[in-house]
Nucleic acid binder design. Sequence first.
DNA 1: GCAAATTAATGATTTATTCAAG
DNA 2: CTTGAATAAATCATTAATTTGC
Lengths: 210, 210
Amino acid sequence: MKVHQLARGFWEQQEPLLSLGCKRLRPLAPKLTDTTTTVSSFDLKSFIRPDSGPRKLGNGPSNDNRHSPPVETHPGGTRWNPTQEQIGILEMLYRGGMRTPNAQQIEQITEQLGKFGKIEGKNVFYWFQNHKARERQRQKRFGHCPRKSAPITPITLDTRVEIIMEREEGSPYKRKYRSWSFEEEEISRSSSKEDENRTLELFPLHPESR
Amino acid sequence: MKVHQLARGFWEQQEPLLSLGCKRLRPLAPKLTDTTTTVSSFDLKSFIRPDSGPRKLGNGPSNDNRHSPPVETHPGGTRWNPTQEQIGILEMLYRGGMRTPNAQQIEQITEQLGKFGKIEGKNVFYWFQNHKARERQRQKRFGHCPRKSAPITPITLDTRVEIIMEREEGSPYKRKYRSWSFEEEEISRSSSKEDENRTLELFPLHPESR
DNA sequence: GCAAATTAATGATTTATTCAAG
DNA sequence: CTTGAATAAATCATTAATTTGC
């Protein structure tokens, strides 16, 4: 099944090293667990990502409390780690029928969720993508969901939530444009109530070998 | 502050998805971290888009008009229409080995190509994506066995030729982060003289038509 | 009880496929 | 048909819950 990437890696020959990792049977394989050599426990990633800098987290120049950082901020966070509140709201929206929020919606959602923790637009976007895909996946894997009735339960929080809903797999054919912005590493996730143009997030990207 | 807990319980009370039958599923317990988030002010109202034009909601079983919405002439125009110079440069870069430029590169490329015509970062990104994919596609289709016969296969029906093979010659599969930015419709590219101005493209997203 | 090892879950990217403008 | 644009599927990578051994 996964022959795919093996083959690819083979042809590629751009990554000659690392080829020993052919035993990739489970993606879950942790960093190493190498069985071939007991010594080479040498974390490639450490080298690959010395970028402690670029990925600043304590970005907030405004609120820089460098003493006793509470558990609040993700420790050296790399990826978004949603809080319960955030997940809750997202699921709520999802159940409400939202599948692929557009830029506006994402912006708003991000803004709201930002009250509960650091978050960026792309996190929201990815969350929906993944959630949708994985629900579909489960559905397929376990066959059918026993209790699938109640197509949608319009969330009634305090007002009518009027979100477009769309068939689960009916191929929505809904096209829209999304914003892109390419930036250098940067930060700026401070609250911003005016949305002018915020943009950018950053990124470490490799110097593009080749 | 307590609210979140309660709220959480409320939301998850019906979450069949994660606990379908199989015992294998370990619903990761809540991570509940801070009790400090006193920001329980999540106004859902904000989520409900005040505007959100008329959803036409043709959800009726009637003919699904999968095609696109009305005219919707975008002020800025339609889609990117590359000029010869742009294409030339892009192909040059492509031949040079570039496959998946990172944010920085895209930024620079965009900037340069901007001298020849309107263009945005995403156009560059998509171009590489598509070019790569289509080269691969052609490779597969006519891959080995260079048949001189006309490639034209006026297939009438929808028979897509399923090609199984896949071989490609080089794509590093580098991981990188990409920037996202969600904006409202707006069009303001221009500035092609300065190169300091960060890109920040925005996009016309369709008003969620359907 | 705790910390390393496992492993399920899931965030983030890349690739494949699809839709539709020109 | 060609190809820009967008989405879905597949994959990679990291986090945290659980298990395990002390």
